[in-house]
Design a protein around this nucleic acid. Sequence first.
DNA 1: CGCTAATTTGATCAGACTCAAGTGAAGTGG
DNA 2: CCACTTCACTTGAGTCTGATCAAATTAGCG
Lengths: 228, 228
Amino acid sequence: MQTALLTKASSSAIPLFSLEAPQFRKSGNTAVTAVGSIHSYAKDEEIFAEGDRSVYVYKVLSGFVRTSKLLSDGRRQIDAFHLSGDVFGIEADDEHRFCAEAVGDCVVIAHRRSNLSALMGNDTLLAQEMTMGMMRSLVRAQNHMLLLGRKSALEKIATFLLDMAERTAGKDALDLPMSRTDIADHLGLTIETVSRSFTQLERQGAIELPSARHVVLANKTALERLNA
Amino acid sequence: MQTALLTKASSSAIPLFSLEAPQFRKSGNTAVTAVGSIHSYAKDEEIFAEGDRSVYVYKVLSGFVRTSKLLSDGRRQIDAFHLSGDVFGIEADDEHRFCAEAVGDCVVIAHRRSNLSALMGNDTLLAQEMTMGMMRSLVRAQNHMLLLGRKSALEKIATFLLDMAERTAGKDALDLPMSRTDIADHLGLTIETVSRSFTQLERQGAIELPSARHVVLANKTALERLNA
DNA sequence: CGCTAATTTGATCAGACTCAAGTGAAGTGG
DNA sequence: CCACTTCACTTGAGTCTGATCAAATTAGCG
């Protein structure tokens, strides 16, 4: 998963959605020239709901977004967490098939997708970005199905931690922005099992838990062995 | 390895306009104008393996194809069954991330994807079809993650049967082309649990099982209630 | 500092798995 | 055409992982 194209597409250095460029200057390092509109959301705020008309596609500028689906009785499956640079909200239909919420405070850029031709028939940067975003989502989904269908609780947690570490810091420590409930609903577990698995990994010396949301990957080899 | 593809497949690698190709089941707009080669595969024959170079994208013309991933110890997850009209084998990278095999005898059309621009930058019908295929795969994957992560064995089977019925006959009976093992590896269960769930649904009067592979959806309402 | 929410831990339960045997259908060859 | 083999599926018994129910602890926060 280290194609030049993939890397290029995921690189936040490349200005996205840059068509006419009404100079929108973000403070600090990020200077975004965008035709989309920038939106901020507070923790747990809804960006769009399941069933909403699909009007925009989004890209995370900062913070974390979760997309999820619900069963009628409230059981929830978080299909993905989206980090800075990730595209989400692409739909084939004109209706969102999952909901998107801010995990913590976050900023996203929204681009109106007037119709599908924006994705399919155009050789624009936006179309390419959306296609690449979709491909990445698909790869992620396929890996996640393997996890959900065939991995044990401990393996799920190990895989999750390694993946999060790689996507964020890339170092041997990470701050989890999401709750145990979110992790459970992402991995197809309960919060109790998530908590117990963390504890077990800590006792095995694979990780350290200075606090609940801060994880040190003390023994990556052990984690990778669990990653199967 | 594309050699395997060419030698093992008892194929007439005859380039055809797909208008001349065997009947498309897909309704509506599907009319491909691209050239591809037609290949036939016998039951359980490999179309491509995990790790193979990704040279073609495929579309099922007849029969069923399964795409799956493996863990190092052999645990398998079938991420999807592909029916007539379905596109599979699209990769962001130049390497296949899952393997594809014929569930029963089947015929596919292979399109060489010399590069990604065929998918991203072109306004061709093929590009559109691939994009649509990818979108459908993503929607399927998202629904399937909900199933794998949050549904009970009985619910999984009910959902699977309703989905298969809708995708094939659309009527109240269907012939399953795949084994219990395939179903188990698709739903994240064991064959024993699959079998027991079938039996239980039969006892509840939701389905009838004239034979193991032939299912009559006797009470769709009951199944849909389980579909949550 | 006290209140609330999040997380951890404990005890018990249940759904799905494992191991094992039995049944049945499809071919194969005599 | 019928024994014989084989493979797929079903069924049964016991086990175990992860869920549920419940309580304790910790962390945030006004």
